[in-house]
Simulated assay, not measured.
Amino acid sequence: MRWKNLREQTVYENRWFRVNLADVELPDGRHLDHFVIRLRPVAAATAVNDANEVLLLWRHRFITDTWGWELAAGVVEDGEDIAVAAAREMEEETGWRPGALRRLLTVEPSNGLTDARHHIYWADEAVYVGHPEDDFESDRREWVPLKLVPDMVARGDVPAANMAAALLLLHHIRLG
């Protein structure tokens, strides 16, 4: 059953997103007003070192008032390559420059409300280049043993679904 988006009207926008009101036709012909949040792509990156530790940020999210482990992430600028954006975000937020990035996965974290796509990358090496430029993004940055990831996710220490999915896949790839 396919819903048809007949038209959208922007009700609010800024540099990061637009809120649109869509006129949606349901399969039975009825119409539904549905809010849609249009977002810029998000790029995220991390690295796993030779000791199978993954570089993570411990941060607070004021919207949900929760603390949790995350990967460095941010919006892709206009015209910017997604992998380049992921590397930039990792360096700005952690102080570590990733080696060659590999695509891990792309997820749509809330596709019933938003068109957001999160593109997540990883590297098997990183070089420390100094204190992070965006140190306000997190309380601390740590190399966390990848073997702990499943228990961290199960406990809720990785509350963001996109980050949990990425870390569980990375755990599977590296530790099988």
Rank of each mutant, 00 (worst) to 15 (best):
22 A>Q: 14
67 W>E: 15
116 A>V: 03
83 A>I: 08
71 L>Q: 12
172 H>E: 08
157 D>Y: 11
161 A>M: 01
105 L>W: 00
75 V>N: 14
111 N>E: 02
172 H>C: 02
85 A>F: 08
153 V>H: 09
126 A>S: 03
99 G>I: 01
29 G>C: 09
159 P>H: 13
24 V>Q: 11
89 E>A: 08
161 A>R: 01
57 L>Q: 14
123 A>E: 06
143 W>G: 13
153 V>I: 07
118 H>N: 05
113 L>V: 12
105 L>K: 00
87 A>Q: 02
60 H>K: 15
26 L>Y: 05
46 T>C: 08
118 H>I: 08
65 D>R: 14
58 W>Q: 07
109 P>K: 00
42 V>R: 04
71 L>S: 11
84 V>K: 05
136 F>Y: 10
86 A>L: 04
53 E>W: 07
51 A>M: 09
9 Q>W: 10
117 R>Q: 03
117 R>S: 06
176 G>H: 01
136 F>M: 03
2 R>N: 13
1 M>R: 00
54 V>H: 09
2 R>G: 10
22 A>E: 14
10 T>N: 11
164 A>L: 05
144 V>N: 08
128 Y>A: 09
62 F>L: 14
153 V>R: 06
159 P>I: 13
162 N>S: 11
30 R>E: 11
165 A>M: 06
79 G>M: 07
20 N>L: 09
147 K>Y: 11
165 A>Q: 07
102 R>A: 06
17 F>Y: 11
103 R>C: 00
66 T>I: 15
90 M>T: 02
167 L>Y: 07
67 W>N: 15
173 I>P: 01
121 Y>A: 13
